Amino acid sequence: MAAPRRAWLVFGFSPEEAAGEPGPGPGPRRLESGPEGIRRVWPAWSYVVVETGAGLEVRSAGLRRPLPGWAEALPSETHVVLRGPAAAQAWPRAAALRGAGEGAPAWSRALPPEPRCPPPLPLLPGGFATPRPPFFTALPGALRARRLALGHEHVLVLGAAGEAYAWGGGRHGQLGHGTLESVKEPRLVEALAGVPMQTVAAGGWHSASVSEAGDLYMWGWNESGQLALPSKGLAEERAQDEDTGAGVPSLAGSAAGPGGQQGQLRVPAHGCYHTRRRAVHLGLG
């Protein structure tokens, strides 16, 4: 019996909808792999860059354009950063949709020879790229990064020993430092100190990490349930039911995770979520 074929699905609005025209809706929509297959996907809001057996290509509203010579992509709605063996470049979105071969890039940075498997974008030698100006930011020389993730206003880094660092905007608790203050320089997420991480990820205003033991930690904004917890509106509704004697139990538990506080608590707008097997812990972010 043949093994089932993997399928790639994309979610989000199409270019037609972004322009105010009728479209297929937010998805999901199947990405047709073709004979080359699909290995990796880098989505933006209205287009996607895919890696096939034949190399990178950009797809948007039925349009497919190859991106020859590039190995990785970091797309946004204004620019896409492309990384090749000798350089990283940022191209305006319109130029990328034409194949990123017309005109001049908005930014370019030569890259030294690297190991066979360099760290993935956004990391670059000496710093990291962003798909909008200024396109490159240096990292402190003492910080040895294995992986870097970009949120809307904040940055997460996985250090060489599995430690997590966060900086940038902190108004939604997305940094995990126990406050809502912004931080300009990389700061260790102390609540995770001593727990080696294997990866980090950043959403708009929330963050996540997975430990080498397989534990998942999430913290930051939970306004729409980003932390896999009831949203603020649902928590307020449950609290109102309790006040009126409806008897609906609230979620409570021992706090854990970045910025967590011990004790019983209700699910807040800013929270932490850590789960492994049957253990669930809630805490403030």
Rank of each mutant, 00 (worst) to 15 (best):
11 F>A: 03
11 F>S: 02
11 F>E: 08
12 G>C: 00
19 A>W: 02
20 G>T: 14
20 G>P: 12
22 P>N: 10
23 G>T: 14
26 P>Y: 01
27 G>E: 03
27 G>K: 03
31 L>M: 02
33 S>A: 15
34 G>T: 12
34 G>Q: 05
34 G>M: 06
37 G>W: 08
40 R>D: 14
41 V>F: 00
41 V>K: 00
44 A>R: 02
46 S>L: 01
47 Y>E: 11
48 V>D: 07
49 V>D: 03
49 V>L: 06
50 V>K: 00
50 V>C: 13
51 E>H: 10
52 T>P: 08
53 G>I: 11
55 G>A: 10
55 G>L: 08
56 L>G: 09
59 R>E: 13
60 S>L: 09
62 G>H: 11
66 P>L: 14
70 W>N: 08
71 A>Q: 12
73 A>F: 05
73 A>N: 05
75 P>H: 04
78 T>L: 13
85 P>G: 01
85 P>S: 07
85 P>I: 03
86 A>D: 13
88 A>T: 13
88 A>N: 03
89 Q>T: 13
90 A>D: 03
91 W>D: 07
92 P>T: 12
92 P>S: 09
95 A>V: 15
98 R>M: 05
98 R>I: 03
100 A>M: 13
102 E>N: 00
103 G>Q: 06
106 A>L: 12
108 S>G: 02
109 R>M: 10
110 A>D: 07
111 L>A: 03
111 L>E: 04
